[in-house]
Design a protein around this nucleic acid. Structure first.
Length: 593
RNA sequence: GCGGGUGUAGCUCAGUGGUAGAGCACUUCGUUGCCAACGAAGAUGUCGCGCGUUCGAAUCGCGUCACCCGCUCCA
């Protein structure tokens, strides 16, 4: 997250509106709620469904090269062993005894310095710390700057109660030991670390009624692994050919240490993921002579057969950007974060995050990673099943190569392995074994993974749409007007239908006719209560883009020109247009898009 | 998990030991001639939850849960 200023007041208003207008409620609220879980109310459910449908439509239905999958939440636990989640999600953590700051046990670098013990501390404000604590004075640190640092750490922990940090008195200072190569002190604070404790971030359950250790299973922490696990089945049963993708939308679960920022970091959330499988660059080179190079102005509009992973990766970043634009999240609210090569996991080649400017800071909406063949490789290894594809085109191209040309390709790869800055180079024997398979037309496809959070997207849409202004009415009374400027394509309700007055049966009947006409095609809302202005305002808060009002002119009171026409009021401009009822549906459909 | 803050009507909030309130929203009736109209009537609360102190607790104490902020974590 970047260091934007947090807008807490804005978030509070948004949370309040979400509840008041049936977008999002706290889960289990009547029982006091449960941390990190949120429910979608009537409008939120519609919004989420629209977002989900929009994603599914653009990612699979409108494409010939992507198919869908709907896998279970609970899968064989070995999947999470293979994917690495059992290990990485169960890190041993240690806490600084002074500040409670946490650190991964295996991330503590050995340190040298003087171990100092204090019996306690107190401040002029009556505040006191009655326990002893031990801190490492780092090698080369001046005793006074060390004491100042300890006072600051204590002050931070105590908060306002301790008053001014510089007035804290440290008690019973004592030199205990001079050490080196110790991993028992927090790397930043120098505070003594307590015992390592496991933190398991996966939600555990038991399959079968006996609930023994042997029955342990996990609620999936991401949807992607099911795609890898079912890769072979999809390949064998759905007439797909590399390059192709498998996408999935579904719930995932993580025991987040700190759920926060409304629905942004939840323990149960919904992901929309695509695994797009491509040929390894070596295969492209053999088939097409070379891999198309990427440059800033490369044409990414239409995938080409000679694209390698880099162009495919850029292509998907662009496709995803187009998707966000199509639902109203344009370049003005998005940012991109390209992970520096040295921060990437050893199996990842590149990762671009698409970030949204949330009120609480700019944070991740989606990550688009180029992951090589790591995941399929892991599942192939752990399951013992061959997950390779056979590529006729590749085999035919290999047949045209001389032994010298083959060796040149191998040498090129060996050189690349040697110049790797991350991880161990692959041993030559393994490289040659891999090329043996490749030259026969067999390989594990590489993968580009756009992985988006549906709940985060809904939150982004809601916070982007929220628009509040203060207006003074005719009587000089100030009031706050809230309009949810949700893009019409994803708005929960598309159109409100209003009889101008409810005490004229002809108008109400005509309005009912209009409502019946529209409701088969669009999500409509009928409202005949209160003044017309109030009804518009209610729909503004619900994010409804259009209001249709049936009035006296609809009945032909002003002559035949306006007979059977209605007023269409547009939410964002408040402009009104007179539209014939017979043209109304087409008119609205065209605007909604 | 630690520190700080908050929790009273659907929403925003007032109420600091003695009958639970306001504004907005909501319901009904009447009125209605395009941007949160008006009149009348009405409903709405385990004062987050539990335990304690007290003749008496929304109010004081302890515990607990949730949310917010900061740390921490972040596939």
């Amino acid at each position: 997250m970047s260091a934007d200023k947090k807008d807490t007041a804005f978030m509070e208003k948004l949370v309040s509106l979400c509840k008041r207008r049936a977008f999002i409620y706290q889960s289990s609220e009547i029982y006091g709620g449960i941390g990190g879980f949120w429910d979608y109310g009537p409008l939120g459910a519609e919004l989420k469904r629209n977002l989900r449908d929009a994603w599914w439509k653009v990612m699979t239905r409108e494409r010939e090269d992507v198919v869908g999958l709907d896998a279970t939440i609970i899968m064989h636990p070995a999947i999470w062993k293979a994917s690495g989640h059992v290990d990485t999600f169960a890190d041993m953590m240690r806490e600084c005894s002074l500040t409670n700051k946490r650190v991964r046990a295996d991330h503590v670098e050995p340190q040298a310095g003087t171990v100092m013990k204090f019996s306690g501390a107190h401040a002029p404000t009556e505040w006191r710390l009655d326990r002893s604590f031990t801190v490492l004075m780092k090698q080369g640190e001046h005793i006074e700057s060390f004491r100042k640092r300890v006072r600051q750490l204590i002050g931070q922990g105590a908060g306002a109660a301790a008053g001014k940090v510089e007035e804290i008195t440290l008690l019973g200072e004592e030199k205990i030991d001079v050490i080196e190569g110790s991993v028992d002190f927090h790397p930043d604070t120098g505070g003594l670390l307590n015992e390592a404790r496991p933190f398991n971030l996966m939600l555990k359950t038991y399959v079968g009624p006996t609930a023994t250790e042997a029955d342990v299973a996990y609620l999936r922490p991401e949807t992607a692994q099911a795609i890898f696990a079912q890769f072979k089945n999809v390949l064998d049963s759905s007439r797909v050919k590399v390059p192709f993708g498998i996408c999935q939308i579904g719930k995932a679960f993580r025991n987040e240490v700190t759920p926060k920022n409304f629905t942004f970091r939840s323990r149960e959330f919904e992901q929309m993921e695509l695994e797009f499988f491509i040929k390894p660059d070596e295969a492209i080179e053999i088939i097409h002579g070379s891999v198309a190079p990427w440059s800033k102005d490369a044409d990414l509009s239409e995938p080409q057969p000679n694209w390698g992973w880099e162009l495919w990766h850029r292509y998907w970043v662009q496709e995803r950007t187009k998707f966000y634009a199509s639902i109203g999240l344009g370049a003005d609210v998005l940012e991109y974060f390209e992970q520096p090569k040295e921060d990437l996991a050893h199996y990842a080649r590149a990762c671009v995050d698409i970030l949204f400017k949330f009120p609480f800071g700019t944070d991740e909406l989606e990550g688009i990673a180029a992951r090589g063949d790591f995941d399929l490789g892991q599942h192939q290894k752990h399951s013992g099943k061959n997950l390779e594809v056979f590529d006729d085109e590749l085999k035919a191209a290999v047949a045209k190569l001389s032994d010298e040309q083959k060796e040149a390709i191998i040498q090129k790869r060996l050189a690349a392995e040697q110049s790797k800055t991350k991880g161990e180079p692959m041993p030559e024997a393994d490289v040659r074994a891999w090329f043996d398979r490749l030259f026969k037309g067999n390989y594990l496809p590489h993968v580009i993974e756009p992985s988006a959070g549906l709940d985060r997207l809904a939150l982004a849409v809601l916070s982007h749409a929220f628009d509040e202004s203060e207006e003074t009415d005719d009587k000089g009374k100030k009031e706050t007007i809230t309009v949810m400027r949700i893009h019409p394509r994803i708005a929960p309700i598309k159109v409100g239908v209003f009889p101008l007055v409810k005490n004229k049966p002809e108008i109400v009947a005509k309005a009912r006719e209009v409502h019946n006409l529209l409701k088969k095609h669009l999500n409509c809302f009928w409202d005949e209560t209160a003044s017309i202005g109030r009804r518009y305002a209610r729909q503004d808060e619900a994010g409804t883009p259009f209001g249709v009002t049936i009035d006296f002119d609809t009945l032909g009171e002003k002559g035949p020109d306006l007979l059977d026409t209605v007023t269409v009021r547009e939410r964002d401009s408040q402009k009104q247009e007179r539209v014939a009822i017979k043209d109304l549906l087409a008119y609205l459909m065209e605007k909604i898009g």
